[in-house]
């Protein structure tokens, strides 16, 4: 049992999230029990409004649950305060978003350097240059997001996600804003990098083909795993 638990990098028990609205309490997520093994790739699929984004934000420690517990790498995320969760994200987690979420004022290189700079890593620039080279953007280091296409922006976001060598990568609809050809290229790159880094991948998508590339699919409907 102990061995099994230590291999699970994410564990949730009876996880739930509800919000109070003028017409009563709205249950966004209920009874989510989940174990994700280290290095596993999981797709969270479901219709719009099924609670995918809420689940990923709880798992990543971006938000707090109303009920239940989450442990990340053996540590209880739910018992941590906001600063504790921030430290956990900094050490353990990488993100890729549908809307890229690059800092508009920063160049591609500076965007990628940022997570390492936050850690105080002196080698930030070299690592960022290497990773941008890896995603095929060595010629676009000094370009700002506005000067890059959607696919290029998402590649910068991938480089930023992997530059800090995260144990877990959360990807929220990473191809949602891209055409299918570019989307496919980005997904290829994402899986390659994930493999190279031996990271656990939690991928939110409503694209069945993409979901099928993961080892396991968790389907959500009205906030519950089905």
């Amino acid at each position: 049992m102990q061995t099994q638990q230590s291999r699970n990098i994410i564990v949730t028990e009876n996880l739930g999230k509800s919000v109070k609205t003028s017409s009563g309490t709205l249950h966004i997520l209920s009874d989510i029990n989940l174990q994700v093994a280290s290095g596993e790739s999981i797709a969270i699929a479901g219709e719009s409004g099924s609670g995918k984004s809420t689940l990923i934000s709880l798992l990543a420690g971006l938000d707090t649950p109303t009920i239940g517990t989450i442990s990340l790498n053996g540590k209880s995320l739910t018992s941590m305060d906001e600063d504790g969760r921030a430290a956990m994200r900094n050490q353990l987690v990488g993100f890729v978003f549908q809307s890229f979420q690059l800092l508009q004022g920063l160049t591609a290189l500076e965007n990628v350097m940022l997570p390492l700079e936050l850690r105080g890593d002196k080698n930030a620039k070299n690592a960022a240059v290497a990773l941008l080279d890896r995603v095929g953007l060595s010629e676009r280091l000094t370009h700002t997001p506005r000067q890059l296409s959607g696919g290029e922006q998402q590649r910068v976001a991938l480089a930023r996600a992997f530059v800090s060598r995260p144990a877990i990568l959360f990807a929220d609809e990473p191809t949602g804003n891209l055409d299918s050809k570019t989307g496919t290229k980005v997904i290829e790159l994402l899986f390659e990098l994930n493999l190279e880094n031996n990271a656990t991948l939690i991928l939110v998508t409503h694209d069945q083909t993409l979901a099928n590339r993961c080892q396991r699919i968790i389907k959500l409907d009205a906030g519950r795993i089905v």
Partner: peptide, 16 residues
């Protein structure tokens, strides 16, 4: 606000 959210997401604490 967005940049701050990203910084927070990347592990920056509130006071930081």
């Amino acid at each position: 606000l967005d940049a701050t959210a990203i910084l927070r997401c990347l592990g920056c604490k509130q006071n930081e």
